[in-house]
Design a protein around this nucleic acid. Structure first.
Lengths: 219, 219
DNA sequence: CCCTCTTCGTGAAAAGTTTCACGAGCGGGA
DNA sequence: TCCCGCTCGTGAAACTTTTCACGAAGAGGG
């Protein structure tokens, strides 16, 4: 195993969840074909992805569900827990602290920060909101989650980097600048909506009720 | 303009937000180089993306900020509003209803549904939560947003399709099956976290504290 | 008018990703 | 034991996306 591409990692993450489901259903083996069907992709893709980090299947039989699940879990680093903090106690931040999915996958949010004095001191899922100025290296956070308004996001990222986090999960709709040793992942809901808006606006079989003609339009 | 690839659309969405910012700063023109710098990509990429739907730049000068912004807005279908409903009034759902970003981009959530009787009747940002059984075609929703637990997501998607939505924005961590005439976009926070976990687990310069040796391992 | 500096638009090359297709291993039945 | 049906692993082909590199404007100064 030398290098696993980003698209492959994302699919592995999906396989992992399917495997958990399938294991819960009591199935012992699963074929690449079945796995592919659940994901809406081809079986060749599944086999290619899995072969990128090992040979886990048995010809004629498929993959051993629990074994494969455990291999992927280890590969993704989900067999340990991560110490995380959250910055931004607004709507999104509150939702994230309460979201089960994260702690289930090894993500412990143990502190919440906010820049707004009105929010400092309030309690969120058992955590007291602290002022962001108290965010330092001493607590040893490995991951920082940004759920602030977009204008504050870069500044918060800088604070997190200074506090020594190794990774940042950013929910503000903007690309952030972080040093190379810090890994950044951005969840951009706005972008997904705009992508959906584009797809709906240009979907093929739509009735041609009237064609908008923009200034520089061509066909 | 014949076809714009998905990665390009996503970047256009980013350019759009940068252009709004730059316009607010009062700048009149912007070069592909500057635009690229803000996004952390190359200027060739920017020019290629923009040229995929028209020639908006002027050689030697760059792009006219407001004009380009308006062109992208029209292309993405953001010059109109979408009538949307939300299913799932839990943590994530509540956050989404309250999230400014959506309405700013033309996304009007005008109804909230939930399957849990305990939540029906409660008010969320001025909207009374209704039981999901009341979700039908008569309200004419164009877009449905799914913010339910993963086990309910497919069923809700089916209901939305039956109610005639054209697009679905799914926040449950699972691929959903929808007919071809319905567009689906999934925001999978769990996957982003797992991708981050993978990156942190395998980051290069880390001290090689211990090497796991799996059964079928090779190098 | 001419020269220089800047920047776009765009084919062509390079890099990356997915799909194809086939050899080979495995279990089971006759 | 031998054959058949199933399924993996994988090189090669096909396709997609990004990067390169260069010709063609455009502006401004002298």
């Amino acid at each position: 195993m030398s290098h696993i591409s980003e698209p492959t990692v994302r699919r592995l993450s999906n396989y992992y969840r399917v495997l958990e489901e399938v294991a819960a259903e009591g199935k012992r083996m699963i074929s690449s074909h079945l796995l592919a069907e659940r994901e809406g992709i081809t079986s060749a893709q599944v086999r290619k992805d899995l072969s990128s980090f090992g040979s886990f299947g048995r010809r004629g039989l498929g993959y051993h569900v629990e074994h494969l699940r455990d291999e992927i879990r280890a590969l993704l680093g989900l067999d340990r827990r991560w110490k995380a903090c959250l910055v931004g106690a607004g709507h999104i931040g509150s939702a994230l602290v309460g979201y089960r999915g994260f702690s289930e996958q090894g993500f412990d949010i143990t502190a919440v920060f906010d820049a707004d004095a009105a929010r400092v001191g309030r309690t969120l899922e058992g955590l007291v909101v602290r002022h962001v100025s108290q965010l330092g290296a001493k607590d040893g956070f490995e991951i920082g989650v940004i759920a602030t308004p977009v204008r504050a996001a870069q500044e918060v990222a800088d604070v997190l980097v200074a506090a020594g986090v190794q990774g940042i999960l950013n929910f503000a709709p903007r690309k952030l600048r972080v040093p190379a040793h810090v890994t950044l992942r951005t969840v951009d809901m706005t972008m997904e909506f705009e992508s959906l808006s584009y797809a709906l606006t240009h979907r093929k079989p739509a009735a041609p009720r009237r064609k908008r003609t923009a200034p520089g339009d061509r066909e």
